[in-house]
């Protein structure tokens, strides 16, 4: 696909997403917004998992840190746009601090370290009641105003989130096109050659992980303001697993992979839940079973995720 077709298709998709909200019910717009918020986090995870080839099992922890920071600061009266950089920076720094020792030692230890980190963060959220509200959570989180426009309504907040998602996507796109990003692509394609050319694998991987964490932190801010209430539950380690699966299923290392994967993980089950057609009703209950089996099948036949299907077909067609 050349660049112009790509841009046109993207613009059309965004316009469709913007217009469709006017015709959807309140709950459906809420779900769309939830999708966009999760995509922010999975987009960051894609940087770690897809481009750097590292498994992170703690994305929900960073998502949660962002959400709790937002809840506390927004309730103190901070403006939304001031909270965003704080959340991003805190998650970035925590990501560096966690990733540095873990990546220093051995390849797959980042997965273990992030997993442990997620469980600890979850415990802290639940037990440090003075700060986090414990299991009662924090309620009454305000939604922002932007240039004097109240973003409290569900459609207004959806536009705000969608716009922010586009900006974040743009930043990611730019990062991947920068010299840094190119070195990165070289790393993914052939690590041994990249290393011999003087690319510091560990430093690049660490940076990718920390930036991915910052994206999750930003997503968390939008999440807190969307739900207007947070408690530890959504930041459990099982959410990290779902996020990772979303990235892999969509297509790890593919720019639009997280958007597709998150739709499958977040939107599809909600769509099934609302349906009354008998076989779809059956799917409501069995959804995760089918999804789980589909993940196994995908790993066997299409380990690159759904968006890699074109390359796969090309490869099949050509000489092997």
């Amino acid at each position: 696909m050349n660049a112009r077709v790509h841009l046109l298709a993207l613009a059309a998709a965004l316009a469709a997403l913007a217009i469709v909200a006017l015709y959807l019910k309140r709950s459906e717009v809420y779900l769309l917004t939830l999708w966009a918020v999760y995509v922010m986090a999975t987009m960051g995870l894609n940087l770690t998992a897809g481009y750097a080839g590292q498994m992170s099992l703690g994305q929900a922890a960073f998502f949660g840190i962002g959400a709790y920071l937002a809840a506390i600061l927004l309730k103190l009266g901070w403006p939304f746009l001031a909270v965003l950089p704080v959340a991003a920076l805190v998650c970035f720094v925590v990501g560096l601090a966690l990733g540095f020792p873990a990546l220093r030692v051995q390849h797959h230890y980042l997965a273990f370290a992030t997993l442990g980190f997620n469980v600890l963060v979850y415990l802290a959220m639940r037990n440090e009641e003075q700060i986090t509200g414990g299991t009662f959570g924090i309620s009454g989180i305000p939604r922002p105003t932007f240039l004097g426009i109240d973003l409290g309504g569900h459609v207004a907040y959806w536009y705000w989130t969608l716009g922010s998602l586009v900006v974040l996507g743009g930043i990611l796109w730019w990062l991947l096109r920068s010299p840094w990003g190119r070195a990165f692509a070289a790393l993914r394609d052939n690590p041994i050659r990249a290393e011999s050319l003087g690319v510091n694998i560990t430093a690049y991987t660490l940076l990718a992980f920390a930036i991915g964490a910052a994206f999750a932190g930003v997503g968390g801010v939008y999440y807190a303001s969307l739900v207007e209430f947070i408690e530890p539950g959504p930041f459990h380690f099982s959410t990290s697993l779902m996020m990772l699966l979303a990235v892999i299923v969509g297509g790890s290392g593919k720019f639009y992979g997280p958007a597709l994967g998150t739709a499958i993980v977040i939107l599809l089950p909600e769509f099934l839940r609302g349906s009354s057609t008998p076989w779809l009703k059956f799917m409501q209950v069995w959804y995760l079973a089918v999804f789980g089996i589909a993940v196994v099948a995908l790993m066997i036949w299409l380990p690159g995720g759904l968006l890699s299907i074109r390359e796969r077909l090309d490869r099949k067609g050509g000489p092997q």
């Binding site: 019910k25 709950s27 809420y30 779900l31 939830l34 959570g137 739900v227 539950g233 909600e270």
Partner: peptide
């Protein structure tokens, strides 16, 4: 809770 909220809206 987040799902409860979505269901209440629905």
């Amino acid at each position: 809770p987040a799902v409860s909220k979505a269901l209440a809206q629905k």
